[in-house]
Structure formats: structure tokens, C-alpha cells
Nucleic acid binder design. Structure first.
Lengths: 338, 338
DNA sequence: ATAATAGATGTAACCGATTACAGGCAAGGA
DNA sequence: TCCTTGCCTGTAATCGGTTACATCTATTAT
């Protein structure tokens, strides 16, 4: 029994007024007699009437919904960012929808279409596969903000940590603690952040005059499977690296696990450095030394920037780097001072 | 520079036909001269026209979008279910939006409002805080399916594992392997699945004539923090339990970690059984013995049921239990046969 | 040759709201 | 008494589509 919802017409009829008057009551227009307001309000309650979003949006061009585009939700990293977005959105009367693109262009386009047609007021990208030019164009037309992940050369606002600096610092930390042969597992050129992290790693090696060995760079990805594959490759190396630096905690977990099966223990026989500080990192064994990103704050700030752009599309494009922190736990051997 | 999108009128004007004809071309109506189709198609391409969702939806009452309502995405458990939903949705030309309710009624209501107003064609609930009566009413009016988590007494379709049987089997497994004092960490009465698991645990103890100790039930929740709290309580017990059975892997991870800090090693000094088989479980140390749910298939099946309901709202309500599996790894001590 | 039929297209109502504009009415000023 | 003013409310256009119905033309049957 699909009971049709009451429309503004039904309310108007019951209250004995025109639809315009009902609409005025709904939108708190001033010029309505208090008596009429009461009539209409009564009718609204009697019919359990709720304004239809579509009709309203079609006119108003405002939905008070925003979309967050993520490539996947398997990576724990995103959950705290999204919480930050959501909390801030909620404070401003906005709702958050999540679009999972799977890193596929077609899927991503469909969600963007929603923005173009005002089914949502804006999008926060946690990742995108679109070319920079397209992103710049979209950002010129619609409220769009990037968080965590940038697309090189795109003219859009960004909230992130400085991936280059963070990776540099992590690498320096490893070197300062006596590690020389440092493998690096990243997502290759898929993610701009990954590229930056790779560059930070390489430049820091150079800075410390450690010869660069291309064989130590393993562009396996950021997933559990990536860590498994990386472990296989590492176990096949003639000499084991002193340390493995991975561009994601997730990959670090499975790598550590696989190495352990081969009798190599992270934190003792080999050092492992992660990236992201996902919720599991502190409970893993050994507790994962990693780069902690202010995920919640990144989300919060991204939402704030998006709200600015929704209010005034001409808001200038900005890039904000938030502070990261090296989270020292047990998976990296520390050189004893003294 | 907000460039307005082309509308159907613009296309009609450029092609020199009426909007009706353009609409017919868009919707592949048969009665259009091939020549005219070509004209219109050319105009559509020239203007880079894409039909506006809102206008269309307002008439058609169909969006080809569905919503998945989750309490949180911090729990890894959901990601594979959602992947199953998404893959199936995609195969049928549907898009998936994710609504994160945070377990809050108000937030949940807003998303339901989207369904009521046809902003989405249906909802798959992975959790709900609504009372059963309300859910039944909603299910009577709109396409709604529950997955993984049920609400007792609600008349809606459900796809899940049999939580009672699964918990019973897990408990029996612990007992058969020599565990007598078995603590149980659950979400209390918050989740129906949690209640069923608790009952399975209790009934199995009785079946094996193990005296029930209410102090061994710890309704801390399913999160990392829940595991930490449970560990604290367990460490304060006069005699340590032989095993801890937790209603979520997530809580199991942090519990194991906290116990280790106190010198108690899961799999050796104490057994730990999880529930869900999240992606991390196999890489954790010790690898987590847990109940594996067919998450992907649950999602897939839920989406299929939802599609049935979207096509024909009168489709009878069903409950489908999918097979679970006890995933035996290293966190539970096994009694040696022989 | 005429009527019936099918095919192609246009007209206009409609979905559910918002809002510019106009009209009605009462109060106040000349 | 008549006109102006302001408050309240209704009419109708509009947003961007879809679609029932009407219209017109060309084809076929009789």
C-alpha cells in the first residue's frame, strides 16, 4: 500500500488557502496573518506534510547536501577524515553523502554529474582520476575542494599534509637510527601524494649521501595485497633491507605479517615505517611507527573551505598544509643514545 | 564563471523541433524519424547537453540511485558488504550513495526522508535505530532491505548470517578445545545481532553444563575502545578467563593488544575469538580466529532483493541466512588430538 | 476516389515546489 | 467622501523535464 505523500496542494486545500500561502508559511515569510499561519500549521501537522526536496531544489538550486568522493572505504584512513567532514557539515545544517568511485573514471563522472545538476551543493574529493584540466574547469564552475590527495596542476583548493616533507622526515628518522638500505613501497604514480612521498624519500637519501638503489622502490600499491606482494619481493632480495617504508599503514600490516611467517620480525630483524596512522596502527603488533595525519582536522577544514565556496563561488583557491607528526612506536628499531 | 547548463529547450531550439521530440529521442521512443533523431543527436552533442536529474525524477519517480545506511565506516566489516552491494548495483545500472547515520535517529530520519521523496529508489540498512513498527511502516511504503543487522519484529526483508547459530558454534568450538571460563564482549542490546550472539553464547554454555557467570558478560561495544575497556575489566578479574569471545574483530584487536601489554599473550596464555573476519584479521598477530561472514555475498543478495522490491513493491518479505564459516587461525589455543 | 490507419511531431498539462505580480481590503489622510 | 497606503493573499509563471492527446501527413485498403 504505497500511500502517496501529502503535497503542498493538499495542505492548501485543507487549510482553505492557496499553495502560495502555504509556501510562505513554510519559508517563514513575514506577510502572513498569524491566524492563517496557525491554520496552515494545523493542516501541515494533520497531513504529516514534509516539503518535497525535488520540487524545492528545482527552484532553489540548493540541497544542503554535499558529496564526498572516495576511491574505496576499505582503507581505514578515510574514516576519520570523513568524520571530520561530517561533524562540520552537521554543524552547518548539511548532510553528507559518500560516493565510492572505485577509482573508475566512469563512476566518478556520474557523481560529478550530480553536482552539475545540483543534486548536491558541492564535492570534497579524497581522490580523483580526472585530468588536471578537467578538475580546474569543474572547480571553476562548481564548489569543489580536494582533501588529502591532490592532482598536480589542478586549480582547486586543497587541504592536506605536506607529503614531501612528511616522507622526508620519516626517511631521515630511519637513517638517523642507523638504517641504510631502506626499501620504499608506494602506489607508484597513481596518487600524487605517493609521488611526493617517493620524492621525499629519494631526496633525503641523497641528502644523507646514501646511494640510490632503484630496486628498493616497490610500486605495489597501498592495499593489503600490496603489502603481501612487497614482502614477497623483499624476501627474494639477496640482502634484506634494514628498513621498509610504506606509503600506507594497510600495506605495512600485511607486509609485517608476511615477513613474520618467514621468520623476520618487524622491530627486531627489520624496521617498518607506515604512513597514515590508521586506527589499527597502535593496536597492531608490533605497534606501528608511522606518520600521523590530522585526519579529523583535514576533513573539518576541507568542509569549511567547501562551505565558503558554496556561499561565494568566487572565493580564491587556497592550499592549506596541516601539521603531521611522526608517531614513534615499536616497528622501527631505535638507535640507543649514549 | 558559472556557465549555465544547456536545457532541453536549448536543444529543441537548435535542432528545430519541440521539446517533446527531444525527450522522445532521449528516451528512445520508437516514433521518431531517423533523420530527426540525427538532427537532435547532433544538437545534443553540440551543446554538450545532459538531462537534468531533478526534472526527470520529478516526473519519473525514479533516480537509479540507492542509499546504504551505515552507522559508521570505522568498522572495516562494512566495506566488503558495501562492495558487494555496489558491484550488483552497478550491474543493474544503479548508483550507490552511502549515508552515515552515526547511530543517530535524527540523521537516520533525514536519509529516510530522501527515500520518501524519491531522491533515491531504495535503502539498504546495515543498521537502524528506528523502532520496529516504524520500520515495518516504511518497508510497506518504500523499497527497503536490511542486511547483516536486523530489528526484531520488523516486517522487512533481511539478508544475514544466523548470528545465533554462529555464536553457538564459536562457543562450542572454544569449549571443545578445553576452555571453560569464557568471557563474552558484545554491544549489549544495541544491536539485535549482538543479542542473538549473546544468546547463542549463553545457550551453548548451558548445553555443555558450564555454570553461567554474569560477570563474564561485558557489554562494552564493538569498537577499538570497547576492546580496551574489556581488557581493563578482564585484567581486574580474580581469575583470568580461559578465553574471550568478542562480537567484533575490531574490539578483539585492541583487546589482544592491551592484554599483551600486561604480559598476557593471546593464543598462548589466553584464547581470543573474534567475529566478522575483517580484512585485518588474517594479518594481525596472532592471526585472529573468528567467524567469517560472506560479506560480499550478503551485499550482493541484499541488493538483488532491493531491486526486486523496486520493480515490484509487493514482493513478499523474506529472510535469507547465508552460510558463515569458523575461520580457525592462531588466537585460540587448540586441544591436540591423540 | 475515399476512408481508415499508422507514423511523426507539436501542444499543453503535469510533477511539487517558489515567487513576482496583481488584487482586495481596511485604515488613515486630505 | 475619495484617494493613498500597507498588509495579506491569490494567480500564474517558472524550474527542466515527461507524456497524454491532438494534429497533420503519407500510406494502404476498399
Amino acid at each position: 500500500m504505497v500511500r502517496d505523500l501529502a503535497t503542498i496542494k493538499d495542505v492548501a486545500k485543507l487549510a482553505g488557502v492557496s499553495v502560495a500561502t502555504v509556501s510562505r508559511v513554510l519559508n517563514q515569510s513575514t506577510n502572513v496573518k498569524p491566524e492563517t499561519v496557525k491554520q496552515v500549521t494545523k493542516a501541515i501537522e494533520a497531513l504529516d506534510y514534509h516539503p518535497n526536496f525535488l520540487g524545492r531544489t528545482l527552484r532553489r538550486l540548493e540541497t544542503r547536501k554535499i558529496l564526498v568522493m572516495v576511491p574505496t572505504i576499505s582503507n581505514q584512513f578515510y574514516s576519520r577524515v570523513i568524520r571530520g567532514i561530517q561533524a562540520t557539515a552537521f554543524d552547518h545544517g548539511y548532510h553528507v553523502m559518500l560516493g565510492i568511485s572505485g577509482g573508475e573514471s566512469e563512476s566518478e563522472q556520474q557523481y560529478i554529474e550530480m553536482l552539475r545538476h545540483k543534486l548536491v551543493d558541492g564535492i570534497i574529493f579524497l581522490h580523483s582520476v580526472m585530468p588536471a584540466a578537467e578538475i580546474s574547469a569543474l572547480g571553476g564552475d562548481c564548489p569543489v575542494v580536494f582533501a588529502c590527495e591532490q592532482v598536480r596542476g589542478a586549480r582547486v583548493s586543497l587541504v592536506s599534509i605536506n607529503d614531501y616533507n612528511a616522507a622526508s622526515e620519516a626517511t631521515a628518522f630511519l637513517i638517523q637510527n642507523g638504517h641504510q638500505r631502506i626499501a620504499f613501497v608506494s602506489a607508484g604514480d597513481l596518487y600524487a601524494s605517493s609521488q611526493l612521498r617517493t620524492k621525499g624519500y629519494q631526496d633525503t637519501l641523497k641528502k644523507y649521501q646514501i646511494p640510490f638503489d632503484a630496486g628498493l622502490i616497490l610500486p605495489e600499491g597501498l592495499t593489503f595485497n600490496a603489502g603481501v606482494r612487497a614482502a614477497e619481493k623483499i624476501l627474494r632480495m639477496k640482502t634484506l633491507p634494514d628498513a621498509v617504508f610504506l606509503a600506507s599503514d594497510t600495506a605495512a600490516f600485511s607486509l609485517i605479517s608476511q615477513l613474520r611467517k618467514a621468520g623476520i620480525h618487524a622491530g627486531k630483524d627489520i624496521s617498518v615505517m607506515g604512513f597514515d596512522n590508521t586506527p589499527t596502527a597502535e593496536y597492531f603488533f608490533p605497534a606501528l611507527t608511522t606518520i600521523s595525519q590530522p585526519q579529523f582536522d583535514i576533513g573539518k577544514r576541507a568542509m569549511e573551505l567547501l562551505l565558503d565556496r558554496i556561499q561565494d563561488p568566487q572565493t580564491p583557491v587556497t592550499t592549506e598544509y596541516l601539521p603531521y607528526r611522526l608517531e614513534i612506536r615499536d616497528s622501527v628499531r631505535i638507535k640507543q643514545k649514549s
